[in-house]
Amino acid sequence: MSTPVLDVRGLAFAYPDGHQALFGVDLHVHAGERVALLGPNGAGKTTLVLHLNGILEAGAGSVAVSGLPVEPANHLEIRRRVGIVFQDPDDQLFMPTVRDDVAFGPANLGIRGDALDTRVAAALDAVGMSEFAERPPHHLSFGQRRRVAIATVLAMDPEILVLDEPSSNLDPTARRELAELLTALDVTLLMVTHDLPFALELCERSVVLSGGVVAADRPTAELLSDAALLHEHRLELPWGFSVEAALRSARDRPDQPG
């Protein structure tokens, strides 16, 4: 069995004010997998994400990324390996131009000159934002800013891409474009989301985090068909949505349009 990209074992964490958010989380993600992390608000999803690159330190248990334990001595390498895209792109994009922002991560890793330019160009190309390199981030639309936020992380050449609510606040077109973009990326993906159809479209496997523990870990289609499980953890499919119909239409059009 290969070393998992993400290896979380018995992770527990309490905030300094005493509120305990995680009670022993076990999660393995292998290279090339696309996993959705589902769960109601307050389930500890964001807390878990902040452990993956060592922003929060495990109270108990351990996190390792491709075999490298997450601990202060390894922070820089861990932060290269784990690329987190936060929910609000305004939090993620803080440099004066798109190009500088995408260069921020690799520059922190010590990359300069032509190698840096190549990385920035490749990352912007991967999200289809090359022509906006010189623009200030705050002049872009919300969907464009989200794509640039993904590029800022891709430029660090991560082993796993972690997305926090990637489809939130997007209009339907931007949401579809983002789905196409993520499908086209050849990376290991962990996606925190409430958007169950989005999870079904992009991730073959889903994990439900509820009450600070992993409550379910199954193929997405099977998990979303379990009405009792969804109800128990305050998850709901949109009105009128049918998992079978969605899978059928995906089978009828095996190639992504456009």
Binding site: R79, I84, A103, F104, M156
Partner: peptide, 22 residues
Amino acid sequence: ERGERVHLAMMSRGYSGRLPVI
């Protein structure tokens, strides 16, 4: 609070106290 979130996002990309001179 936004400042805190921005700081988190910066640290997640390897920020160590200085803006890199690109």
